[in-house]
Amino acid sequence: MDIQASRRAHPRTFLVAAAAAWLVAYRALAPTAGRAVGWLPVDPGSRLAESLRFFLYDAPKVLLLLTGVVLVMGIVNTYFTAERTRALLAGHGEGVGNVLAATLGIVTPFCSCSAVPLFIGFVQAGVPLGVTFSFLISAPMVNEVALTLLFGLFGWRTAALYLVLGLAVAIVSGWVIGRMRLEGQVEGWVRELPGAGPGVARADGSFADRLEAGLAAVRDVVGRVWPYVLGGIAVGAGIHGYVPADFLASFMGRSAWWAVPASVLLGVPLYANAAGIIPIVEALLAKGAALGTVLAFMMSVIALSLPELVILRKVLKPRLIAVFVGVVSAGILLVGYVFNAVL
C-alpha cells in the first residue's frame, strides 16, 4: 500500500528508478545465466548445457524486454485513445489517411473484440472506408508485443522488416479497398445510424494515472503472454543442437515456390495472437524454413482470422468481406515472396 501511495505521489521518480533497475537486471542476465548453468549437475560442454544456457538467458531477456516495452507503450497508449485517432483520421482523405491510419494502428490500443464498434465509430465520423481498413489491418498485426518478441528472439532486422512490411500491407490493402468504392457493401443499418456522438468524455489524466495504466497493461499483457514466450523459447532451446537445422528446408525453404501461398492459406483459419504464434515461428525458423514464408504465415494468422470475420459479418456484406480477405492475403503473399527474394 505504501509503495502504491508513493508511486502515485511521485510517478516520474518511480519511472526513473524502475528504468535503472531494469537496465541493471538486463545487463546482469548473461553472466547470471552462465553461472546458473555452472551450478547445475550437467557437463558444461554438453548439448544439454548449451540448451540450458540458451533458455536461461533468452527467457528472462525476452520477458524483461516485453515488460519494459509494454509499460512504455501502456503509457504512450493513454495519449492515443481511439477517439483521438478517429478525430485525426476524419480530417484526412485517402492516401495520406491510409498511411496515418496504419501508423496510428501501432500506438492505439486495440483488441480484436472491439473491431466492430471501432469500425462503426470510424464510418460514422466520416473516416473513408479504405482508411478504416488500413487501421483495422495494422492495429492487430503490427503491435508492440509482436515487434518485441521478434526483436528479442530473432534480432532487430527481422523486427524492422516485419514493421515495414506489415505497415505496407495495411496501407496498400486499405488503399486498394478504398479505390474499389465498396461503401454500398456496408450493412444498411450502419449507414443509417445518426452521426458520431461525442463518445466518452475522458478527462486527460495526470501522469500518475498514465503510469497506473501502463502498469495495468504490464499485468494484463505479460500475465497473459508469458507461457507462450516460455513455450517458444523452450522449443528453440530444445531444437538448439538436436534437430538437423535444414529439416524443413526442402519443403518450406526458399526454393519451394508454393510454400508462401500454402502458409498464407493455412494461416487464415488459424487464429492466435502475436505471442501464441511465436513458438511455432521459432520452431519453423530453427528447422530451416525461409524467413519470408514464416513471416507470411505469422501475418496471415494474426491479421486474418475466422472469428474476426464472423464478427465483421454483422457490419459488412459478404462481398466486402471477400474483398478484404482477398486483398490482404495478396499483400501478405507478396511480402513473403519479396522477403524470400531479398534475404
Binding site: A82, E83, R86, P109, F110, C111, S114, V116, P117, L118, I120, G121, F122, Q124, W189, V190, L193, A196, G197, P198, G199, V200, K314, V315
Partner: peptide, 11 residues
C-alpha cells in the same frame, strides 16, 4: 451490436 452502436463507443 446494433444496441451498442447507439452509445457511440469505439471499444
Amino acid at each position: 451490436i446494433q444496441d451498442i452502436a447507439r452509445y457511440g463507443i469505439l471499444a
